[in-house]
Design a protein around this nucleic acid. Sequence first.
RNA 1: GGCGACGUGGCGGAGUGGCUACGCAGCGGCCUGCAAAGCCGUCUACACCGGUUCGAUUCCGGUCGUCGCCUCCA
Length: 471
Amino acid sequence: MREIRLHDTRSGHVVPLKPRDPGRVGIYACGPTVYSRIHIGNARPYVVFSLLKRFLQHEGLQTTLVANVTDVNDKIYDAAHEQGISSGELACRMIGHYTADTDALGLGRPDHEPLASQTMGAIVAYINDLIDSGHAYASGGDVFFRVRSDPAYGSLSHRRIDDMDQGEGVEGSERKEDPLDFALWKGRKEGEDSWWDPASFLTDVPEKPVWAPGRPGWHIECSAMAESLLGVGFDIHGGGSDLVFPHHENEAAQTRCARGHELAKIWMHNGMIQLTGEKMAKSAGNIAPLHEVVERWGRDAVVMYLIGGHYRQPLAFSPSELDDAERRVYRIRDALRRLRAGELSPAEMTLHKEAFFDALADDFNTPKALACLFEWVRDANRRAEEGDEAGDGDLREMLGVVGLGDLDALGADDARASDPEAYELAQERERARQERDFDRADALREQIRARGWEVRDGPDGPDLIALVAER
RNA sequence: GGCGACGUGGCGGAGUGGCUACGCAGCGGCCUGCAAAGCCGUCUACACCGGUUCGAUUCCGGUCGUCGCCUCCA
């Protein structure tokens, strides 16, 4: 079996994946905060970790993927207030969109998709544990984490406490012992329409909690959701690189202090999608909504686009990049029609496939793997040219792991059935060709093209291939 | 200002101390009635300046530039 190596943000190195439980891997990937529809940037971690799971399973590791949904958060209160609806309703609506938008990627669902609002008991208990162990304190109805009580604080994001901005002027700062402390719990404020009472969850605690009804902070939600489903010390914790600090730093600190263990062994972070050189962010208003991108280019092109760059690097976004991805998909589908479906590939071509999986094992290098896949394709095309059609087994195996296993061979949807008129025109054109009436044949080809089909004359007569949509 | 990352050919994007990444686009050729697709070839690539080295795009130092984070943005 291959040694699988992944980049770990904490150590700063590519390290071997050594599962906590032999043969089993647990992944927790931070999902979206549901206050609006997600954009292509939000789709990146979803795709990266879904595909990583596929690869690990291909390598014989039983893999559990948890992708949470943050449905209790300041941004949701704000956005709901603006829209004049309740925060619960907004979150519910956006969860529906999120599910539909990611379903459209055709990669299946994560194994678990916990909601903060449904993990409240674990969250409250967690906070209580942190108070009991002296790492947190209640103040004015809020609860804060005592950052300086964790000697390892900053070790994930490689920051020294004393270098940090002191958070002056931030809401709640007058209730903090130290400006660095962050909220584990926020007492309900005027206008907030959903809240929870900690006392209702701490029924076995003798005294009433000294903190007020309200809602949890973002970081503790994730610590609690991750631990409830994967336990502490699970294998991979992932998310966007913009979450390294403070979100993941704080998650790590909470778990370390409450449990005496690291939350995760490897911290993986994906780079940002960039629009015109800048990070795509809702706050910047430079968004490409996922559902629009998928609708325009199709999920195949979107997945191809995302695996075209290494997950850790920033990736440029523009319509022409998606067009480019669409052409790559087209090349593969074109190759597929020259292959024998469902048959094993020649042994001499296996080295490309091995290189493909080796690239994935080396810090999930999808662009390098893709290069290997295209070398396989060229090799196969070369053979087809010599009349030696290869089996598609290797190619299907590679495609399956990167979420493109369902690609159809080009021309598979027979024009004869889907567009009989185009088929008729093609027959007519072939007769004209036989009569060497090439002007007429060319005119007919234009007519067929106008119907969305490309005519390819081969040794066995013409084929009709659906055109890539013109833009 | 602090921390981190990065600057590769028209575009995207891997990688390496000396050997074609790969894809898209362009150009030439083979094939074709002409095309398309495919195949073959091709296109002044490694920000700049020093250093280490037989040799650096790859290592080290500096300069310039870009990006991310710095309390809740994937």
